[in-house]
Design a protein around this nucleic acid. Structure first.
Lengths: 218, 218, 218, 218
DNA sequence: GATGAATGAGGGTTCATTCAT
DNA sequence: GATGAATGAACCCTCATTCAT
């Protein structure tokens, strides 16, 4: 009987570098996000990825090289998602709304991104600094946001003098902190901030804060 | 026969439980803040504190017990600082200004607090949840902020319907995220956000955002 | 039947730092001599010494630190044996005879010494150079040999102008090379140079060479 | 469609068995000499030789097979050099002089030969014993030296009863030990024995020792 | 003949923790 | 209360070797 399904792979094809590499990267993302760099275990990554432990070193050099690759992939992920936004097609207020919603949704859907950034900051961005791709990780949204603010200003809707980078960081911070610190906050304040109603309330609040701030002075 | 050199070894008295405990806690705070829970080394803590490794277990049970103690002490620290604020003595806007400045300054002066919270969140607040002191870690500022908002509303300065907890989280988030992620942000955007001018700009921006948001609708 | 020798230790006393350290050093000497630095296995050393593997690092830092300690102990061993020689008590010729015999016997009885030196030279003496005890490893025999040569010269028995260090190296080399390379030499020349008759012949030859050389010119 | 750039990659022809084999052997010689058998890395050899790692196994079976091949080549090298000597063309004393100088120069120019012999002796000549070429590695110089000694004896210049093998080993030992152990000796005695003046002095000394010994008794 | 990808056993080292004193 | 010595599990990483192409 012939081997079944030529095109469909069995769990792990014998020789498929791309796939092996990707499987390691995936498993490592999960592991690093869950346990941090120091707490991550190379053995667990290898087991979860289905690849031999040696392969991890073959492709990524060492644990820290793997961590950097994970980090770069994480940035690439959000940048890729950002590119699908079409913020300049709509009016300024709607545009800001979309950006906030996108930021919120992305962080919500990608808790590993938050965790990885925290880990990298614990290490003072030492890995990122070594990255040759670091520059290209810069968000194009800053420029876009600048254009939106400018247009809102021209239309006399927004206040003037808003630094797009500051605003970008503020939007991120308003979303990020809530989600990043959701466990301690929930514990300390005795509320389940991760539950749906609370999450909806948070998004509304963040939107209110940002748009409330941007309103031109009366 | 009496032990010789009674007066000797002045640096650290041979037996001073409080002192030993405090020294361990201090060293552990630094270590956990710098390396995270997974990356922290019991040996380094013992060495830095000058206490024997065994003492660490004697006082705190194990590494995680020590981490919890550090965490509780960190919360106690910020709560103690908060109590020195007299927010209700001044007008609402100034009151909010003070709260923002306090939050910013505290995070700036206590990077270990940020790092410890990140670590605890990585572990899903598992230590805090076990703490019996957890309840008492709740910030009294939420109630105070509620009173400020209420007063501002009555004086027709602030908008209505602002949830004090949400606002508290927002103020924290606007400060925290910038400082917590300062290394990756600086690296990605190619700016030194830790330098003084940038820090001043950030505090102004945060104040603008919050007060801009709180303005009553025109 | 009563257990013998009350005072004698069971195989390994529970707490005896000196003993533990010495046991590790002994086992390491054997291991390094047999397999070289690269081929030596920390696990084997730990097993053979009866000490926990961790103890090896506790006392010696790492594998190379242990190697250095072994090396220093090996030098200390030969220097200690040299001190028992009383070369200046007898006539010059007999004195040189004794020195040769001592050198030969010591190398013969301590093949590990030869092997360790070879290993260290493979590594370009990198460990020895780091040693603070290196200076004290210098042999006092050079000075003694100088005195012997001088006396032999005065008595018109020996030739003049002999550098004691060169002669010392020559005596060592004549013995060392034969024993160090005994396996390849035996294999290449198809003779068992390790057998007793061959060994006796070698010692006689070496003595002849050295004394033949030292003879004053006719 | 034809593969582009037929003439490209001139450095190493894609398929040149002899060349590949020789490149591996060269790289392996360097590697084994530098790090010993245990410390040598197959990967480094493969990289340095430019050949695929698999080729190494293809040609030499395994790491130890490669080591043996290196060893045999090293012996072949010195034997080949020896053949260029014409010791029987000159008077006995000059003949011995030449042999000493040759031995010294060869060891000096081929430190890898010394290192390889040391490695093989560490392993008790286990590789050499398996070699079918071992017999042919025997030096023809022993016989030649025998003839020289005999002639010197007949001419009443040399002493009688000198075993050519012993003398050969002595000449080798006097040169070998100094060079083989040059790092430890330099370190212990605090002199740079590798510098030119010291090297010249050593060659003179060795010559003096051997010729001094060979002198007929007065 | 030649290659990049893959392997499993084991390398040296370090971990948090506990013992005997 | 306090100490230096000791533990065993597990850490990250590397080894010589082989597979599929």
């Amino acid at each position: 009987m012939p081997r079944q399904k030529l095109a469909a792979e069995p769990d792990r094809p014998a020789r498929d570098p791309k796939r092996t590499r990707a499987a390691i990267l995936d498993a490592a993302t999960t592991e690093f996000a869950r346990y941090g760099l120091g707490g991550a275990r190379v053995d667990r990554i290898s087991r979860a990825s289905g690849a031999n432990k040696r392969m991890l070193y073959y492709y990524f050099g060492d644990k820290e090289g793997l961590f950097l690759a994970v980090l770069e992939a994480a940035y690439a992920g959000i940048r890729s998602a950002e590119q699908k936004l079409s913020l300049l097609d709509v009016a300024p207020i709607e545009s800001v709304r979309r950006l906030i919603r996108f930021t919120w949704d992305y962080f919500l859907a990608h808790p590993e991104f938050i965790s990885l950034l925290n880990s990298e900051n614990l290490h003072r961005a030492s890995h990122l600094r070594k990255s040759r791709r670091a520059r290209s990780l810069n968000s194009p949204l800053i420029a876009t946001l600048g254009a939106i603010l400018e247009r809102g200003r021209r239309e006399d809707i927004f206040r003037k003098g808003v630094d797009p980078l500051q605003l970008y960081i503020s939007i991120a911070g308003l979303c990020y902190f809530y989600l990043s610190n959701i466990h301690t906050l929930s514990s300390i304040f005795g509320r389940d901030l991760a539950a749906q109603p609370a999450r909806g309330a948070r998004l509304r609040h963040v939107t209110d804060v940002v748009l409330g701030y941007l309103r031109r002075e009366p």
